[in-house]
Amino acid sequence: MERRAFRLNGFAVLLGLVVLAAVAAAAAFAGPAGAVAAIVLAVVVVLLATGFTVINPNEAKVVQFFGRYVGSVADAGFQWVLPLTTKRRVTLRVRNFETSKLKVNDAAGNPVEIAAVVVYKVVDSGKATFAVDDYEEYVAIQSEAAVRHLATTHPYDSDQTQGTSLRDGTEVAAELTAELRDRTDLAGVEVIEARITHLAYAPEIAQAMLVRQQAAQVVAARTMIVEGAVGMVGLALDRLREQGVVELDEERKANMVSNLLVVLCGDKATQPVVNAGSLYS
């Protein structure tokens, strides 16, 4: 939608108007006909002077001629565009804002608090001005909608078999950025980056979820210990058999396995017991 408006160097046009004003001043003293010409030239100078505008770096001016969009000027400096036009300023600087903390239910139905920071800039001043009422408000509302949608399609936490969770920062940020780009393209805005800045369970379930997470970690740790202990017991039995240290029947093997598992899986130091007899007396 954006197109370049006709423009000239403002200083060159200003010099021309100064010359034209000098001619009008000289004509004013050349009799009645010269006075009329001076008035006409003065009106022309005033009309042309309405086309001057100053454009700052990383800024664009949207030019309208009696309501009609004629183009945008983004070249910094003193410029001259069509006279009798209105010029609306649109910043092209990179901007960012943080959404408010939103309370939504994740994919598992758990209430969570989530917020994100969005970095964006205007890339089409025409769309940003005419496609939406207020592009800043539009981006803010669409950002909150995208964050809500993201939270409802992913669980707060999950293992590798359950796909992406909200705690997978890189994947979630890429997904949120892509969705926001689709939503804000209509407004002539490019989303550079969107990233989750706050993520937590809602206060009413935070304590219960903490207990559940701790229990899951304990179970995972115990599972790893048992798997390691079983491997060590198997290795010990294989070494004893290969080196011919001792011949063990099934009952002695079972007793040895039991003792080793108690030693390896226990969370407290064990005290050795010397057996002076045998298993059969």
Rank of each mutant, 00 (worst) to 15 (best):
K121M: 05
N110S: 12
H154F: 06
R183F: 06
S165V: 08
A116M: 11
E137I: 12
V147T: 10
V118T: 14
D168S: 12
E175Y: 01
Q160V: 09
A145L: 14
D168R: 05
T184A: 07
H154S: 06
A140D: 08
E193S: 13
E193T: 09
A131M: 12
Y135V: 10
S143W: 02
L180S: 02
G109Q: 03
R183W: 00
V112T: 13
R195A: 13
D159I: 14
E171A: 15
Y138T: 06
A115C: 10
R167G: 06
Y120D: 08
I141Y: 03
T164V: 14
A108T: 10
V118Y: 01
R195Y: 08
G126V: 08
V132A: 08
T129Q: 13
A108E: 06
I114R: 01
S158E: 09
A145K: 04
G169V: 09
V147P: 04
G126I: 08
R148Q: 11
D133R: 14
D182G: 15
A128Q: 04
G188F: 08
V123N: 04
E113H: 13
V191Q: 02
Y138H: 06
A131R: 05
E113P: 02
T129D: 10
L150E: 14
L186H: 12
A116Y: 06
V139N: 02
D134F: 12
I141W: 00
A115W: 09
D168E: 07
I114E: 00
A131Y: 12
V132Q: 09
R183M: 04
A151Y: 09
Q162V: 05
G188K: 08
P155L: 10
G109W: 01
V147W: 09
E137R: 13
A140V: 05
D185H: 10
Q160A: 14
G188C: 14
R148E: 15
G169K: 12
T177Y: 01
G126F: 07
E137C: 00
V118H: 03
F130K: 12
S125Q: 08
D134V: 09
V191A: 01
A107C: 04
R167D: 02
V172L: 00
A178T: 07
E190H: 10
G126W: 05
A194F: 05
R167K: 15
D185A: 15
R181M: 01
V122G: 09
I141M: 04
S165H: 11
S143P: 02
T153L: 05
S165D: 11
V123K: 08
A116L: 06
S143K: 06
K121E: 10
L186F: 13
A116T: 10
V132D: 05
V139C: 04
A194Q: 07
Q162P: 00
Q162G: 09
T184W: 00
D133F: 04
K121L: 07
G126R: 11
G169F: 06
V112W: 07
V112H: 08
V123F: 11
